[in-house]
Design a protein around this nucleic acid. Structure first.
Lengths: 346, 346
DNA sequence: TTGAAAGCGTTACCAT
DNA sequence: ATGGTAACGCTTTCAA
């Protein structure tokens, strides 16, 4: 039924170990022998048994990817990370086992202790993440996508969300805006201190405060009403708001619709900048200026870093620098705020 | 370094086999012995080595999930299937290895032949899918999410997309519409004959034709312009169109915005029904009536079916029946088509 | 109710 | 350049 090395060896007329060495390439084999073995392998359709190999080498060529299933995490954003990790893993000949951290880290611990995975990549890291101490106590390396409070705790790759937020703020400030609102992730995300959510907000708000400018912040709840409510909250805190920083992919379409309903044109009456993946920003009407979230790159780098560690190297921490791409959704503030408000209220 | 059964046995003062039997529960163990062994396991933090177990039992407790990476497949829809499969697999104590079928099925074949997975779930099945013969030739069972041309080829679970399309059509027909357009998936999806895309469209269009009603079809390309162009194409084919069937999640927000720009109110001037996951439909403004796509249920059922097969049972094919939920986005057609068109053209 | 020992299919050390 | 064989950690048959 199942083809083993012994079958290949017999057919090729060589010893078992020779077949193994042909497979691993760990010692020189004469061209003729290799060719004969290869033919036997092809003819028999032989593939080395994964379990047997794992037990000998202590390696499974499987990377575990720990994803949370928080209901407020946008599935498509999450999928970008997963696909990037998957693709990069495959480029190293590794496979990806998908793991949920809901219901505790027991499953992750089990799979690691049972040597089912060579290493781990974990995403959606919180500033004080209870999973981080668990991960660093494991016998296999783990790389975080995101930065925990103590950055020395585990190797990680991240995007400079604080600078991304600050960059959005400076962009609007440089355009002459003085009344700027920040629409962020859901309250839940802030409650659990999701790194990206808090750092982007703090980066933006501290930049705005430093410029002595009036500013307000509102989280955006999931659901169609969330963006509308959040916008309302910002406008009632400061009716003269002329610029919005939006870091919430779900919010953007609803926000733009709502602005339209209020008679506010983008960017004539309201400037909008965002932090989100490039294609999300360009697929909106109008396209939204902003900082590109390099989801795929982060996933890819996390795998690179894990592979370095597995090869015994000491990885360099990675913090990707943001860049802002203008797409025409932000301009100078309107001359007369009152005019704008009056029109909006009609 | 690594804790083995022998360590547990020694600590508990029993034999290796006793420890193993405590673990597998395959033979009666006295309460006292079991307790002692369990304590030793806990104290040592022992977990059975996955590779060693796999080599003995011929089972890895890993399910492979084959996903395509077609650029026109909505990532968030795909993620629903993946998460559902993941969650259901875990309820059986199984783990999920994520596999891409881009670049051929070699990887899938390798992992199966090397006994790395116990079985497979494959999604995004095309009517004539080159992956299906590969999957049915494997030594491990595979369950499809979707129906191939020859349904006997492999076990599968599916949603009755033809009936879903027909149901949308009948709903609009019953409301009195006679001029109905169908906005479908991307041309790519139709080119590769993605099961859901072609069956939903054919189900809807044949129902419309049977009712002797004028109808038109347009695929919707990805990108912000796609929905607008598709709508234009439908309206130029039949300017009197009063009802739209939309099976393209990406299209809905842009479509609604465009209808607004054209001065067409939903449902007063244009009725809209859709096939999509429930939360997508309810998170739109206005909420869109339509058939709920049971993505999570399909993923879950696929795993159930795979588990049945792995337990030696013969699975029953599953074809979920659609149901239409009214949400107010469809109503009777406007009295005078001309009036509507004139207003729209202003 | 428990123990001893024979494999499972591979890799890699020690030979030749 | 190639071959024999011990070992990896576990499950399970055979014995007691």
């Amino acid at each position: 039924m199942t083809v083993r090395v012994a079958d290949v060896a017999e057919r090729a007329g060589v010893s078992i170990s020779t077949v193994s060495y042909v497979l691993t390439g760990k010692r020189p084999i004469s061209a003729r022998t290799r060719e004969r073995v290869q033919r036997a392998i092809d003819e028999l359709g032989y593939r080395p048994n994964a379990g047997a190999r794992a037990i000998r080498t202590g390696t499974t060529d499987i990377i575990g990817m720990v994803i949370p299933v928080a209901p407020d995490v946008r599935a498509d954003i999450q999928m970008r990370f997963v696909l990037a990790v998957l693709q990069q893993a495959r480029s190293y000949g590794k496979n990806v086992l998908l793991l949920t951290s809901e219901g505790g880290m027991d499953e992750v611990r089990n799979l690691t202790t049972s040597a089912a995975v060579d290493g781990l990549v974990a995403m959606e890291i919180q500033v004080h993440d209870p999973r981080v101490p668990v991960l660093s106590a494991l016998s296999r390396p783990a790389v975080l996508i995101g930065t925990p409070a103590d950055p020395r705790e585990l190797p990680h790759v991240d995007f400079d969300f604080a600078e991304a937020g600050a960059m959005c703020a400076r962009y609007l400030l440089d355009l002459g805006h003085h009344d700027i609102g920040y629409l962020g992730q859901s309250q839940q995300a802030f409650d659990r201190e999701a790194g990206y959510a808090v750092r982007a907000r703090d980066g933006a708000l501290s930049q705005l405060s430093a410029a002595g400018c009036r500013n307000a912040f509102a989280p955006v709840e999931p659901g169609p009403a969330g963006p509308t409510q959040a916008l309302e909250s910002l406008l009632s805190a400061n009716p003269d708001t002329t610029g919005l920083i939006v870091y919430n992919e779900h919010a953007l379409p609803h926000l733009l619709r709502r602005l339209g309903e209020l008679g506010m044109r983008v960017p004539a009456d309201m400037s909008v900048v965002t932090i989100c993946p490039e294609d999300e920003a360009t697929s909106l009407v109008p396209p939204i200026s902003g900082v590109t979230l390099p989801a795929a790159e982060l996933g890819s780098l996390a795998v690179d870093q894990l592979m370095e560690i597995l090869h015994g190297e000491v990885p360099h921490p990675v913090l990707l620098r943001p860049a802002l791409t203008p797409r025409g959704s932000a301009g100078p503030p309107p001359r007369s705020p009152r005019t704008r408000r009056r029109r909006a209220e009609t």
